[in-house]
Structures are given as C-alpha cells and as structure tokens.
C-alpha cells in the first residue's frame, strides 16, 4: 500500500470530524498543531488511532508523536520509514 498525502488528509479529516474541509485545505508542510491548523493533545490521540487503524503503527511516546504529527509531510515520512 502506497500512502498518498491525499489519502492521509482524508483520514485526518474523517477522524477529527473537520467538517467542511477538503484535503486541499490542509497544506503539506503547514503545522497541524498550535498556530497552524490549531489541533490539540486530544487530536493527537485521535491521530494515533488513525496510525494504528490504517497503517498498523502504534505510537505511544508523547514526545515522539508531537514530532511525527508536526505536519502532513512529517506524518508521511514517518509512515514510509516504518515500511
């Protein structure tokens, strides 16, 4: 399975219930947390569930997840590295 940014963005939108948003609204390198999209620690937990469900990746370390979930680019890089 090849992960596309488009797919991942769609999964993020569904998991976080970002209604009215399309994959085009999320920039590949824009920060997802804080000043960027404005996600918080609970969204990070939801993203961990996305990783587990769709990619079989279990993230548990809070600091690591912060780094991995920085942007769509960093998420894709991490998924690719776990192949």
């Amino acid at each position: 399975m090849n992960v596309t940014k488009e797919q991942l963005k769609q999964q993020i939108i569904e998991a976080l219930n970002l209604e009215g948003m399309t994959p085009d609204d999320i920039q590949d390198d824009a920060p997802l947390f804080g000043e960027g999209l404005g996600l918080d620690s609970i969204d990070a937990l939801e993203l961990m569930m996305v990783f587990d469900k769709h990619y079989g990746i279990k993230l548990t370390d809070r600091n690591e997840s912060k780094r991995v979930f920085a942007s769509v680019n960093t998420m894709v890089e991490y998924i690719e590295s776990k192949r």
Binding site: L16, N17, L18, E19, G20, M21, L37, G38
Partner: peptide
C-alpha cells in the same frame, strides 16, 4: 438557528 457567525470551523469539530 444560525451558528455560523460565532463558531469557527475548527472549533466545530467536536
């Protein structure tokens, strides 16, 4: 009733 004015889309997610 209309909710648009006060709630940003990102806030609405939950």
């Amino acid at each position: 009733d209309d909710c648009g004015k006060w709630i940003k889309p990102i806030e609405a997610r939950r």
